[in-house]
Amino acid sequence: MNRELLLNFAIGLGLPLVAGVALLLDEPFVVTLATRVAILGLAGVGLNLALGLGGLVSFGHAVFFGIGGYAVGVLASHAQLYTPVMTWPFEISGSSSMPAIWLVAIVASALAGLLIGALSLRTSGVYFIMITLAFGQMAYYFAISWPAYGGEDGLSIYVRNSFPRLNTLVPFDFFVVAYCVLLCAILLFSRVAISPFGLALNATRQNLARVQSVGIETYRLQLTAFVLSAVITGLAGALYADLNRYVSPSMLSWTISGEIMIFVILGGVGRTWAPVLGAAVFVILEQWLGGVSEYWQIFLGVILLAVVLFARGGLYGMIAGEARHHG
């Protein structure tokens, strides 16, 4: 078994192990931290699809994260008040069931991904980075200035939404939900990465003109990848809002886009489990350094800088060596 596979198992089994042991030791806070890692990792898996496989450096993934969050906030608040979300052209009522909310989060972030992707993919390289960042900021300011759903103050979700047969208010139960969603996304990512679609997408990252000249429309290909990526990150946003029982424009802020990118790059771009490792390290640093100093982000900055400058390939690159050749 090679080291990459070993590391995958270590992360994949380590996370539920930590949550399980914390449950036995009655440390609900640690369970919640593990849940946070799973959810943030999920957001990173989403970005990794666009960034790692497709080479699309999106600095606007907070949009989808936030849309997922607002799907929860809006539907749950209407469910609490027994008012419909909209009545025309068809009626949508509020909901407090996670699967129903996830569906809405998926559809909404797919539409947003389609719109932002369709415009941003008209360009490439550094333009793409700036444009995705700008659209992210647009969504942020819109959320702040639109008063119907709390504006700058955001929305509180008084009772965590429900999942059939589980009591989501119990930290471990909610961890199980989040972890299972993460596993599904990981499975999806690993299948897509070696599929015909993934092969072509991977090729666009390396040589766009070559891919066009074998008869593949790269714009459509990249747009599909971008939407898929948006959906996964949107789903993560929905879970995150439920974790915190709160959603606000800060979920849409550009720093969230940056953090999601950190998970991916700290872990190792393009590697299946890397965003989860990146998220885990991020959460641990946040807890540990956050306890040492109020200004822990200085240290985060220094570590990040060191990783970019000296440890290319992220933690996965350091531990498991260079990425295996695709497929």
């Binding site: 897509v192 070696i194 015909p196 679609f197 008869g215």
Partner: peptide, 16 residues
């Protein structure tokens, strides 16, 4: 070959 046959939008089977 994928390009010439228009086999691109398959997500779940390995390309190889």
């Amino acid at each position: 070959v994928q390009g010439s046959r228009g086999i691109v939008y398959r997500f779940f089977r390995p390309a190889l």
